[in-house]
């Protein structure tokens, strides 16, 4: 994957997170990963490994400290992807 936009990353994340959330829970950019989605930490870390492979980047676990919403996560991935070019 050469060029990717923030919106494309956001869309991909929403798709992947839908598979981890309870049925009929709608994921949006502002969904809070911890309080609203309530997925456990290991599921989130496993998702990060998938994202790393998808975009061929390294996303350190410690960089997730400031991630609260799906948009925060998309922004982080976009920033790392942009810096890796």
């Amino acid at each position: 994957m050469n060029e990717v936009t923030q919106e494309e990353i956001l869309k991909l994340l929403c798709q992947r997170l839908t598979g981890l959330a309870k049925a009929d829970f709608e994921i949006t950019a502002e969904t809070n990963l911890i309080t609203q989605l309530a997925i456990d930490s290991i599921k989130l870390l496993n998702l990060i490994m998938e994202i790393e492979d998808n975009f061929d980047i390294s996303v350190p676990v410690n960089a997730l400290t400031d991630v609260i919403t799906v948009r925060d996560l998309a922004d982080l991935i976009y920033r790392i992807k942009s810096e890796s070019k």
């Binding site: 870390l45 990060i48 490994m49 390294s58 996303v59 350190p60 676990v61 410690n62 960089a63």
Partner: peptide, 10 residues
């Protein structure tokens, strides 16, 4: 790892 401040990759 977290205490060290290093980047942690699994």
């Amino acid at each position: 790892c977290i205490l060290s401040g290093a980047d942690v990759i699994r």
